[in-house]
Amino acid sequence: MVPCSAYAVLAADAARAGPSTENVHDARVQSTIQSHVVRHFQAVAEAAARLPPAVARACKTGTDGDREELSTHFRNVVVAWAGVAYLRFGPMAGQARQDRMSLWPDRRGEVARELGQLLASGDPAKFEGGALAKQSPAVQGLPALELLLTDSAAPLGPTDASSLRCKLASAIAVNVHGIAGELLQGWTSDGGWQEKMLRAAPGKEPYESAQDAARALVMALYAGLKSVADDEVKPHLYTTSKSEGPYAKSNLAAEYYEAGVNALNHFYDAMALESSLAGDKDWVKNSAGIAWNIVKSSDGAGGRGSGVAKGDQPSVQKVFAAMTTLRKLVATELSVSAGVPLLGKTRKTK
C-alpha cells in the first residue's frame, strides 16, 4: 500500500498537471479515503470496542473509579464520532446508522422520552439479545447512553434499583460497538464504499467516474461545515436560545465541537483542494486560512478553543461568519478549480 502522505503528494502533483483530468480526481479520492476517512472510522470502532466491558465493570462494582473509567471511554467514543459525523453518505446512510448511533440535534426530546418509556416498561426482553435494534433510533445510541451515565439519582451499579438500567446500558454499548464495526466494514470490506469510490467507471453505481466520487467527498465537506455552523454555533447567536450543545450533559460539547472542526480541517487538507487553484487565486488560500484559524480558536459557544489565550477567542458571530466564508469558498472557488463544481447541474449520487 502506498503511504497516505504519498497519496497527498500524488494528488497535488496531478492537480498541477491538469485539474480537469480523471487521474486528478482519482488521486484526490485515494488521498482522502486513505489518509482521513478510513483512519477516522477506525478510531470510532476502536473506542467503541471498549464500551461494553467498561459498562460491565461499572455495573458489577458500582465504584467511583469504574464509573469514571466508563465516563472516559464514553468520552473517547463521542470525540471519535465527531470526527466522522459529517460523512453521512455511503455506509452511514444505510440502516439509519447516523441516527441509531447519535440522534442529535434532538429538538423534540425524543431520546429522554423514549428512553423513559422503555425503562418504565420494565421489560428487558425489549432490548436484550439484539432486540434493541428493533427499537427507536432514539434509544439505541450515544445520547441514550449519556442519560443513563449522567443520572446521579440512579447511578449504575450492582443494586436491584440499577439492574434494569445496567442491562439497558449494556445493550446500548453493544449496539454502539456493532454500528461502529458496520461502518468501518462498510468502507473497507471487499465491495465496500472505499472500493466503490476507487473503482468508479461508466455504467457503475453509485459513481460513474472518479469525478463523481471526488464530488461526493467535497459535498461532504460542505455539508459538514454547514451542519456544525447551523447546529452547534448558530443557536448561540441568540440569547433566548435554550439549545444545548451535543453531549452537554457530559460536559463534552466543547470537545465535540473541537474534534469535529479539527477533523473537517484535516479532511479539507487531505483533499488538497488548494493545490488546484490558479496562480491568481492566492486570496482564496489566505481567506480560507484566516477562516480556519477563527473556527479553531473557539469552543463553538463563545468560549476559547484549546491553546487559545484568555480573551483571544473570537465571538460567536465571527465564528459563524468564518464558517459561512469557508462554505462559500468551497462551493464557488475550490470545488470549481478542482473540477468538481457543487453548483449547477451535477450527477446525483447515493
Results as ranks from 00 to 15, higher is better:
197 M>A: 07
202 P>D: 00
196 K>V: 01
156 L>M: 07
206 P>C: 06
190 D>K: 15
159 T>E: 12
231 D>M: 11
206 P>G: 03
207 Y>P: 09
184 L>T: 00
204 K>R: 15
167 K>W: 01
224 G>I: 12
173 A>Q: 04
212 D>G: 01
151 D>I: 09
145 L>S: 08
197 M>L: 10
183 L>E: 09
205 E>G: 09
189 S>A: 15
173 A>S: 15
217 L>Y: 09
143 P>M: 10
210 A>C: 06
160 D>W: 01
172 I>L: 04
195 E>K: 08
231 D>G: 05
214 A>C: 08
218 V>H: 10
193 W>P: 08
230 D>E: 15
215 R>N: 05
157 G>I: 00
168 L>T: 09
197 M>V: 05
216 A>I: 06
230 D>A: 13
179 I>T: 14
144 A>H: 03
177 H>V: 02
163 S>A: 15
187 W>G: 12
231 D>W: 13
176 V>N: 06
159 T>G: 02
222 Y>G: 03
151 D>K: 02
172 I>N: 00
218 V>I: 13
206 P>L: 07
145 L>I: 02
209 S>M: 07
145 L>C: 08
226 K>M: 10
168 L>C: 04
170 S>N: 11
189 S>T: 10
171 A>F: 04
196 K>C: 04
171 A>R: 04
180 A>S: 15
224 G>V: 06
184 L>F: 05
223 A>K: 14
207 Y>I: 10
178 G>H: 09
167 K>R: 15
188 T>E: 13
228 V>S: 10
196 K>T: 07
199 R>Q: 14
198 L>G: 04
182 E>W: 06
191 G>W: 07
170 S>K: 11
179 I>R: 01
175 N>S: 15
188 T>I: 12
184 L>S: 05
203 G>T: 08
170 S>T: 14
203 G>A: 12
204 K>H: 14
220 A>Y: 01
144 A>E: 03
155 P>M: 06
231 D>L: 13
149 L>K: 01
209 S>Y: 03
211 Q>Y: 01
169 A>S: 13
175 N>F: 03
201 A>Y: 03
180 A>I: 11
181 G>E: 07
226 K>Q: 15
205 E>L: 13
191 G>S: 08
172 I>W: 02
217 L>G: 15
170 S>W: 00
153 A>P: 02
193 W>Y: 15
174 V>Q: 14
143 P>Y: 06
205 E>C: 00
219 M>G: 13
143 P>R: 02
197 M>P: 08
170 S>F: 03
229 A>L: 12
170 S>R: 06
146 E>V: 08
196 K>Q: 15
205 E>F: 10
